[in-house]
């Protein structure tokens, strides 16, 4: 009897230990990545890094201003495309009757888009935009990114609105407020933190994407401000520089990786701030 209890205690400590070790190992990849990227990337960070374009092949020094600006332009443009588009679809889905077949198909499509590999979206954007325009452009890259952002925005909009108590909608309608006014002046403002969070998450999802840009924005070693021209982006630059045989470009790639990681951290922080600042107490 005593033995039995001892054995069971041993068994449970054993399982506890296994779980502890495996949980600690979750930190491992993150720590390794951060260690690598920071220790290598930090060397690249200086004023030139933010103000210069990449040096000529083989020369040392240079910076990634072209990629920073390119990422900024393309992400900004994709937000402008995806937010009104996704917001409308999300609101439409929320507002659709429960038995609407069209809404069912729309939800299904959104889920499918979400699971399409980003490289495929890049190829589709190539066929849609690059081929007809006969050139690579930041605009086509932004479309590819916008398509990737879409599902998250649609879903988070719809789900946020669904979480708002129906009684709020009824309170507004009972005051003789028309349906759409109620939707736009009561329901959406009440869900603003959830909707913004969805938007921020979707930015985080696309900012580090290389695949959709390879066939669309293509990349460029110059500082470009024209969205109809090929443009660089941080993940593209990382991809191109890391593939090159030059040590100085490798350094740039590490530096750019560090910035991207820093940027994603900022987005996570931004989400925390949004939730805190805009949360509506229902």
């Amino acid at each position: 009897m005593k033995n039995d209890i001892f054995f069971r205690k041993l068994q449970s400590s054993f399982f506890f230990l296994v779980m502890l070790v495996l949980s600690l190992m979750v930190f491992l990849p993150l720590i390794c990545i951060l260690y690598y990227v920071i220790s290598r990337g930090i060397k690249a960070i200086n004023l030139d890094f933010f103000t210069q374009i990449p040096s000529h092949v083989g020369d040392s020094g240079g910076g990634v201003l072209n990629a920073i600006m390119g990422s900024f332009y393309m992400v900004f443009l994709s937000i402008i495309i995806a937010v009104p588009w996704g917001l409308s679809a999300g609101i439409f889905l929320y507002d659709a009757p429960d038995d609407s077949r069209f809404a069912y198909l729309l939800r299904l499509s959104v889920d499918i888009i979400q699971s399409i590999p980003s490289i495929v979206i890049g190829i589709v954007a190539y066929v849609w935009f690059v081929m007809p325009m006969q050139k690579f452009s930041a605009l086509s890259g932004s479309f590819a990114l916008a398509i990737m952002m879409l599902p998250m925005i649609v879903r988070s909009t719809e789900e946020t609105l669904r979480l708002i108590p129906k009684t709020l909608k009824e309170a507004s309608l009972a005051l003789g407020v028309p349906h759409y006014t109620t939707l736009f002046k009561i329901m959406i403002p009440s869900g603003v933190s959830g909707i913004l969070t969805g938007g921020a998450l979707s930015i985080g999802r696309v900012v580090g994407e290389t695949a959709p840009l390879i066939f669309t924005a293509f990349g460029s070693p110059y500082l470009v401000h024209n969205i109809l021209k090929p443009m660089d982006a941080l993940p593209l630059l990382i991809y191109n520089c890391a593939m090159s045989p030059y040590e100085s470009w490798h350094t740039l790639a590490w530096g750019a990786s560090l910035i991207l990681i820093f940027f994603t951290l900022c987005i996570n922080l931004l989400i925390k701030i949004i939730v805190k600042k805009w949360e509506v107490v229902l």
Binding site: L175, T181, I186, S190
Partner: peptide
């Protein structure tokens, strides 16, 4: 014909003042 519900449902984004005026504000 106004209605008051089982659960109080003031508009969470609005102040007390704006809640009272909600019918006017929302109806423009």
């Amino acid at each position: 014909i106004g209605m008051v519900f089982q659960r109080a449902n003031p508009f969470p984004t609005m102040s007390i003042y704006d809640n009272v005026l909600a019918g006017y504000k929302l109806n423009g």
